[in-house]
Write a protein that binds this DNA or RNA. Structure first.
Lengths: 338, 338
DNA sequence: AACGTTCGCGCGAACGTTCGCCTCTATAGT
DNA sequence: ACTATAGAGGCGAACGTTCGCGCGAACGTT
């Protein structure tokens, strides 16, 4: 049984009407000092806690934020989820909201899940993650005018609130770092063209190469999945270029690829950090303990989670948004590998 | 605004009372075939979805499962959370429940958070994780008679529903594997005595050593935190024992310790897998890509999450529990390190 | 023909809040 | 002394469901 002690119980104990108790407890009514005290005492004595479901029903809001994340393969674990979720939960709680996690479905039915949550009144807003170009959820929520915030960007022409890590800045730092270390032939193990995140990061690479006056050869860029296997294969390809064209440094778009590349280097008898620089992206938990420790880029995940909730809450409260999009700068973590 | 279409709207459209619509939609009332059809058509035409908050208020249940997890340090990332959470979310959704994540607070106020969630009627049950001996939450929930299930065990004398990975079985498999490979001096990098999880795992080690007639020297057991640093230091101590007493194999209680031990071995010029066997526990995402790939123990996390929710739901539905505790066997993943 | 019995459906109430409006008294202003 | 004003608190209603009971009609039974 839930809390048996209701407003009426407190009211009876304090000798006032239960509506008065409600108002006093919510600070919406000034009463004489003594009745105020009686009400407070009664609430404390009976250990009253307002039933949130009843409250939500009355005010016709759920104070819930829907969130779902992609099912990672057993291989590619989402090491970011912990930080992202807990920062959102903290921030949401502080604003009187809670998180509602729900299963992530791919495909056409995905929007149905979002619609269902709205129609049944379960959520007041959404945080979207794993967004990409032409995300059907964004189109749906925009046309419905339902509050949401995206962690990540989509089509440039769409105007919606988002939070994102500035991937261009990240690769900017990475590439500049390598250039400063004297590298001139810098290869990159990248993602396919249909990834907005990937394209954004590549922008930082191209920018620095160009402004440093360095050549970018098409054969230095390998595009494929963000897996260990692809990282390894791509690195092998790059290593097998003729000696005078071969990159002396390899930039990757995530740590998993970087580790694959490290294996490839080892297979070719190269010592990572001395014969070949390799830089990752993500700062995965184990990356600091690799041989050699991986130079990589750390994303401000907790800040992103907080910002997502902050932006979403201002929308749900009906306040105007001062800034539609927020870009957070990642941090280059220089270790030994590059 | 939430769903504007209510039971009354459907009823008006179908020409019956709204209570009838409710009952028909819930299958609690048999009506003539034609009115049944009219009601169904109306519901479909208006795209009716019952407001869950109102429903929950009426039936005085929240259909929510409270869950909170320990804040991991940036160093020690919870790579298990993704699988555990998503399996729970899936299973809960199938049973008509949802998960309510809330911030994990250590210390005396922790129970207050649980109490608050109960008193405000927000949750119908809890999944507890990171339980250990003398967990105040267990005491509180047991005496309050509130439904919960623990992922992990606590004091043996307490009788409450739990799901746990059989750590003894895990180290049983590990140790037997090493014995079969001919190892006689097997050291272990363990946790302090106040960890139930750690003690459980050690039981598997002691069992196998004893039944194999192998000696267990106290100096072969190092106890400390589950960190990289402790793993490294403990392994250095063990490596520095006199040659004829030095363990030829090292069992650790998690992969992070194991990686620390691998570094220690490298520092001492030992080749892991040939000169020294090292086995981890957890199968962290990167463990397969280490040099050499780490032999470790994989826990059935998704099964555990499902089972937790299953047990909790049967309690919340008021059904009797057939099995109080469930032990799940982990799986030895043999790679190269040991 | 009078009587139970089932079927099909309606009605009132309740879950625990919040919200707007009303009433009553005491005080101040003219 | 009569009215305006403000302060203190009560009252009814509503949010959208579910649940138990009741009632009329149709049906079959004696």
């Amino acid at each position: 049984m839930p809390s048996k002690v209701t407003l009426k119980a407190v009211a009876a104990h304090a000798g006032v009407s239960y509506q008065t108790v409600s108002k006093v407890l919510n600070g919406q009514l000034r009463v004489s000092a003594e009745t105020h005290q009686r009400i407070m005492d009664a609430a404390k004595a009976l250990d009253y806690h307002p039933n949130q479901i009843a409250r939500n029903m009355r005010v016709r809001r759920s104070f819930m934020i829907g969130y779902s994340w992609v099912q990672t393969s057993p291989d590619q674990v989402n090491h970011i989820l912990d930080q992202f979720l807990s920062s959102m939960v903290h921030e949401a709680e502080a604003a009187g909201y809670h998180l509602l996690p729900f299963p992530f479905r791919e495909g056409d039915e995905q929007v149905d899940d979002y619609k269902e949550l709205i129609d049944t009144g379960r959520v007041d807003g959404f945080v979207l993650s794993s967004v990409n170009y032409n995300d059907p959820r964004i189109e749906f929520l925009m046309q419905r005018g339902f509050p949401f915030v995206a962690f990540g960007r989509s089509n440039p022409e769409l105007d919606f609130p988002f939070v994102d890590v500035d991937g261009a800045d990240g690769l900017h730092q990475v590439t500049r770092h390598l250039v400063e270390r004297g590298h001139k032939r810098i290869g990159v193990i990248a993602w396919p063209h249909d990834s907005r995140v990937g394209n954004e990061r590549m922008r930082g690479y191209f920018d620095v190469m160009q402004s440093a006056g360095l050549e970018v050869r098409p054969e230095w860029i390998e595009r494929g999945q963000g897996t260990f296997e692809f990282g390894r294969e791509a690195a092998l390809c790059l290593m097998d270029l003729p000696a005078e064209q071969r990159p002396t440094a390899l930039v990757t778009l995530n740590d998993t690829q970087a580790i694959g590349a490290m294996h490839a280097a080892r297979e070719r008898g190269l010592e990572v950090g001395r014969d070949l620089a390799i830089v990752g992206f993500d700062d995965a938990p184990m990356s600091q303990y690799l041989f050699p420790p991986l130079t990589t880029v750390r994303q401000p995940i907790r800040a992103a989670g907080r910002k997502c909730v902050e932006i979403l809450v201002t929308q749900m409260e009906g306040k105007p948004l001062v800034e539609k999009g927020t870009l957070l700068s990642p941090e280059l973590i220089i270790r030994v590998s590059g």
